[in-house]
Write a protein that binds this DNA or RNA. Structure first.
Lengths: 66, 66
DNA sequence: CCAATAAGTAAAACAAACTTTACATTTTGT
DNA sequence: ACAAAATGTAAAGTTTGTTTTACTTATTGG
């Protein structure tokens, strides 16, 4: 699964720390997410989508290996 | 977080086992999801959405306590 | 150039998702 | 009513998300 969190974050001009604070996770979680190191929970995905005013599907996309 | 998986499943006329097989999880995972016992991964949410031809946001919804 | 801020990374610990097995209860079709 | 299928539930175990701490490497602004 891939995501465009880094782009959304740039559009909204937020640091990883800013974003982490907004959705109540650690900065490392944001960093690891952007690096594609793991798959977040659906609650986290919904929170990110809400903050960015996008649907979850606009931010996250399934890949072949999923 | 709440979801309407049970409704979608009814619309598509699938048993919990059918659905579990389609997205490669155990039947208990489907059962627990419908019962709101836990929050699925975003990959699982995307797979469900794809199967039901809906967006993740149409199936899952944040609640106050999230 | 220097200092501050932001980002990358890693390991240990903890919390939560998910599986497996197993059994009980409910629903459905005949 | 009976049998079969579907659903509910639960406990133990494995895997994976997430936090915390900490240190290093970029990037930015003055």
């Amino acid at each position: 699964m891939k995501n465009n969190i880094k782009v959304q974050r740039a559009i909204h001009n937020l640091t990883q720390q800013d974003l982490a604070d907004r959705i109540s996770v650690s900065r490392q979680t944001i960093n690891a997410l952007e690096a594609g190191k793991y798959v977040p929970s659906t609650v986290l995905a919904l929170k990110l989508a809400k903050l960015f005013d996008k649907t979850v599907n606009e931010i996250f996309e399934l890949e072949a290996e999923d």
